[in-house]
Amino acid sequence: MVISPELINLITGVISFLFTLLIFSYVLGDNPLFRIAVYIFVGVSSGYIAAVAWWQVIMPRLVYPAISAVNTGSSALMLELGLVLLGALMLLLFPHVTGLGRITLSFLVGVGAAVTLAGALTGTLIPQVMGSINAFDLNAASARNIGFMEAIFNGAIILVGTVLTLAYFHFGARPKADGSMHRLGLIEALAWGGRVFIGIALGVVFAGVYAAALTALIERISSLITFITGFLGNFL
């Protein structure tokens, strides 16, 4: 049985239209239709992810190498896969943070911590610190057609913003005589400036989120219009 692409597109359009309307019904308030759509969406998404995990994780990275190891007699590979399989079994049999599952989780946490640590150090911390310093690099500014004063001024703002923001996240405090906890005066002043920069950054992020959401809304409305016009066009 061969399903024509038109039919597939029609089925897809109908389903998409229905689910979009169901979700949009939330504008009127929480309702069962919205919930039905959400629950089905969660189920489908989970099922799909499970299938992806099977076909794109277990099969190519565990089953196929195991078959290959058996065929080639690679003991090292078999050992490695055996260990992984053992860890996988422990994780499956003891999914919670109990029992033997903790061994697998400890391995994952240890490796993940190392990767995160190294990545944060080499990929963010040092480069961003260097970026704050290089903001005053006049040669780099001139390469970007940025003037001297503009580079110095912008660099200063960036540097001040970075420092003040970091100061804002300094939560070390000392107890006062009345028992209240307050930061040092200097830190408090820096933190006040940091709040300004953080407010600006979050405002920008808010605008970006709004733009992304608006784009998604436009896409959905556009799809509805497309489906309706296309559906009606077939009948009109």
């Binding site: 480069p127 961003q128 970026g131 950054a201 920008v204 992020v205 605008a207 970006g208 989120v209 733009a211 992304a212 959401a213 784009t215």
Partner: peptide
């Protein structure tokens, strides 16, 4: 996406 751009801008 527009929502992630501000956080990627420093890089």
């Amino acid at each position: 996406s527009a929502q992630a751009a501000p956080m990627i801008q420093p890089y």
